[in-house]
Each structure stands twice: as C-alpha cells, then as structure tokens.
C-alpha cells in the first residue's frame, strides 16, 4: 500500500462512510507508520484531570453503607442438561477406562470380596452412582437412560452411595451366606446422613434466618426510620470509610455477629437527589446524598436490632432475586451490579 493510496483512503473516509470497515481499519504498514508525524510526547504523558473547580459545585452528603453478605454454603443445583451430560460422561468413562483392579482392594475369599461380587452382580459396574450399566461387552452401547429415569439426578446418586454404604448386597438372598453377611452388617461403623439441601427456614420462608437459600448469597437488608428497605448505612463522620463500616455493622446488627470486612475500598455507590436542597449547619446546601458501600461477610452469629443506634425497625436476609422486589426501583438500578449472581 503506497502513500497515494493512503491519502485517497483518508480523503474518502472523510467524505463519508462509504468504505467498508475492514478497509478503513486495516493496520498501516511500518513504512507508512514511520512516515506519519510522531505524536507529541506530552500527549502520551500523565493526564490527571483537575479536581478543584473554580465555580461552586453542588454538594452531597457522604454516607457509608455496608453490604453484609453470607456466601453460598452448598453447591448449586445442576441444570438438567448439565446433569445429563455429566452422567453421559461417567458412563463413557466406564466404557473407556481400564477394568477395576479388584484384588488390589479386596483379598480373595474375604467377606469384603464376597460383598463386592454380590454388588457387582446387581449393578454390573464398579461405579456406584451411574445406575445399572455395563461398560464392556455386546450391549455396552446401551448407555442412554430412558425417559423419566432418575439416574442423572444428584439426590438419586447420593442415595445410591448411602445405600451402598449401609447394605451388604445380600438382603434379598436367604441361607447361610445372607445370614453371615447380615451378621457382618452390624459391625459396620455408623455414619450420619447428610442434611437436606432445603432447610426448615426455606419451607417456612423465614427471611430472618441465615440458614435459608443455602445455594445463594444472602444480603442483610434493613428497614430504616422512614420505613424504606435498604442496606445498613449512616452518615460519614470524622473517620475513614472502613472505620465507618465497622461502626455501622456494630451499630445496626449488634455485637453478636462475627464479620469480616472484605477490602477497604467501596464496591458500589448509590446517589440520591433530594426533592429540595437542604442547608446544613455549616452553611452548605446539599443537593442529595451519595452512599458508598463496603463489602463484608458474616461468618457466624445473627443480626439483632434490639438496641441499634440507627433507628432500624426490621431486617431480612435476601438473595439477589428477592432484593429486586424488596427495594425501590431507583435503588435497585444503582445497586444491582454489585450483587453476586449466585
């Protein structure tokens, strides 16, 4: 590409948008780039916009807010497609993996070995959570589950693992072998069943409880003096933001919360404009307020508004979807991007 073409292209580009984008944005070759006038050095240097304005700007009250959250406690529910895909991959692995080395794990002619053989005869595969499927042989192609099958569901898989731990595989048999197996069953160590993924608070919809919506991040939402739901916040005094955040946590939720302030920088802000400017004691007229939110995590304990110093009336632990309907539209618009999706 020579200089003449470049000039033409530039003229044409100035004339209108009639050149296609790929032609217009072609990177220039080194030769033409060198020929172009060098950018002045001061343009590349540091440019920090001036902070002080000569004209009086509208002033805002500065508030500190706390986004106190409880992180997810358990894994999320899988989408049915994900669950089906994972089951498919597990069955594929049964077909492709080397056979299970039985005698490395079970000595021949021991009770454990007999139990293994009984269970293998029932489920046909070493894996305990993929259902009845045989990865080798003539019919290994039959790896798809039928309509309405439960094999891909997490709860079904957990139940099979528990069943494997508490049964001997000889329950339906009769005779000496079954009697011996059932005698050995009593000597097994007892284990605890895992608690459910839904809690009592979920069923009763107790939004004050922290043991609810275990798969989601919960945020502390409080009802302020005016009866509006928002995150705990207070006016900034002679202190820095994270000092104010610590104060607000104690002043609103009481001392019975083990919290951790994540970082010392705000993760979002909310700007509110008053209907009429307010004149403060120092003579400034405030147009509105700006609230800067700091992130905190609750590790243990629970909020208690009994003698809070901010005049709060009520509190809730809500996740993002519930927050949307609980707060004002303008508030939601400004805070939604600092909340975790899950």
């Amino acid at each position: 590409m020579n200089a003449g073409q470049q000039t033409t292209r530039r003229v044409a580009a100035r004339a209108g948008q009639s050149i296609c984008r790929s032609c217009r944005n072609t990177p220039r070759t080194y030769a033409t780039a060198a020929a172009a006038a060098p950018t002045p050095e001061h343009a590349l240097g540091q440019h920090i916009p001036p902070v002080a304005h000569s004209s009086p700007s509208p002033s805002y009250a500065v508030n500190a807010g706390v986004l106190l959250s409880r992180p997810p406690q358990i894994t999320r529910d899988l989408h049915p497609f994900e669950a089906a895909f994972f089951l498919y991959q597990k069955r594929l692995n049964e077909r492709l993996a080397l056979p299970f080395t039985r005698y490395f794990y079970f000595k021949a002619r021991t009770p454990a070995d007999r139990e293994w053989k009984r269970k293998m005869a029932q489920r046909l595969t070493p894996a305990r959570d993929i259902g009845r499927y045989k990865g080798y042989g003539e019919e290994a192609w039959n790896d798809e589950v039928l309509v309405g099958a439960k094999e891909s569901e997490l709860q079904w898989q957990v139940d099979r693992l528990l069943e494997d731990a508490e049964t001997t595989g000889a329950e339906e048999d009769s005779g000496v072998a079954a009697a011996a197996a059932n005698a050995a069953k009593d000597e097994r160590e007892a284990f605890e069943r895992p608690p459910g993924r839904e809690t009592e608070a979920d069923r009763t919809n107790d939004t004050r409880s922290l043991a609810r919506a275990l798969q989601r991040t919960l945020y502390l939402l409080v009802k302020n003096k005016e009866g509006r739901w928002e995150f705990p916040q207070d006016r900034l005094r002679d202190e820095n933001l994270h000092g104010a955040a610590q104060r607000i946590i104690t002043a609103s939720g009481g001392p019975n919360m083990n919290t951790w302030l994540v970082g010392h920088v705000p993760i979002g802000h909310f700007q509110h404009t008053y209907s009429a400017p307010i004149t403060t004691s120092t003579g400034l007229s405030e147009q509105g307020s700006k609230t800067f939110f700091l992130k905190a995590r609750i590790m243990a304990g629970q909020a208690n508004l009994k003698d809070n110093k901010l005049g709060l009336q009520d509190f809730k632990w809500l996740h993002k979807d519930e927050l949307k309907s609980a707060v004002d539209g303008d508030y939601w618009r400004q805070i939604k991007n600092m909340l975790a999706e899950r």
Partner: peptide, 25 residues
C-alpha cells in the same frame, strides 16, 4: 472423557473467592 461434575471448589471460587480477591486487591 470428562468433565464428570462441577467441583465444589470451582463453584466457591466463582461465587465467592474471585470477587473477594478483586475487592481486596
């Protein structure tokens, strides 16, 4: 073959750890 699941550590990283590290650093 694989993946066979969504590991808990990965989910915790995505939902909690990554954003906390971002806020801290």
């Amino acid at each position: 073959p694989g993946p066979f699941g969504l590991p808990r550590l990965d989910q915790t990283y995505q939902s909690t750890i990554a954003q906390d590290i971002l806020a801290m650093t």
